[in-house]
Design a protein around this nucleic acid. Structure first.
Lengths: 68, 68
DNA sequence: TCCGAATGTAAAGGTTGCTTGTCTTAATGT
DNA sequence: ACATTAAGACAAGCAACCTTTACATTCGGA
């Protein structure tokens, strides 16, 4: 295992604000629902490109969504 | 093979500004020299945690270093 | 209560990120 | 000429990210 200090994120809250299901968000991000779920429940971090996509969906900077 | 739209980055320029070798930067980031080289020559994207580390070394936002 | 939507979890498999090790080449200085 | 440093490249191996498929659980509304 990597030393995995996994990042914290505000995905769940943001999803709620935008009234999106995990499946909705997955569709917008062009990833699977399970991937959204895994990131949200902090099983693993998104890749950098995916983090950019997430940020663009919510019109925020990456740093406003993810924190170390 | 992925359709690899790899991100662009300004690592090489930033390294020059800070007068750091790839090895120096690698030490600060706690990754291998080859990893720094591969990211700089855009063989692959850094992970999100590594992107955060890179941003903190140069005191910039991720978006100011990497662009899709 | 029952149904459907949303969520959580898991296994198996492919791709990407990162490692160590090695080799080559260019630039610089002595 | 020689040594040193920086950088680029490649390969093998492992860890992390992401996929599909599948099944279980939770929850709100009719």
């Amino acid at each position: 295992m990597r030393e995995s200090w996994l990042m914290k994120n505000r995905l769940k809250v943001l999803r709620a604000e935008y009234n999106l299901s995990q499946a909705d968000l997955a569709t917008r991000l062009e990833v699977s629902r399970q991937t959204v779920n895994a990131i949200e429940t902090e099983k693993y971090d998104p890749s950098l490109p995916l983090a950019f996509k997430i940020a663009s969906v919510f019109d925020l900077k990456i740093e406003e969504i993810f924190t170390p």
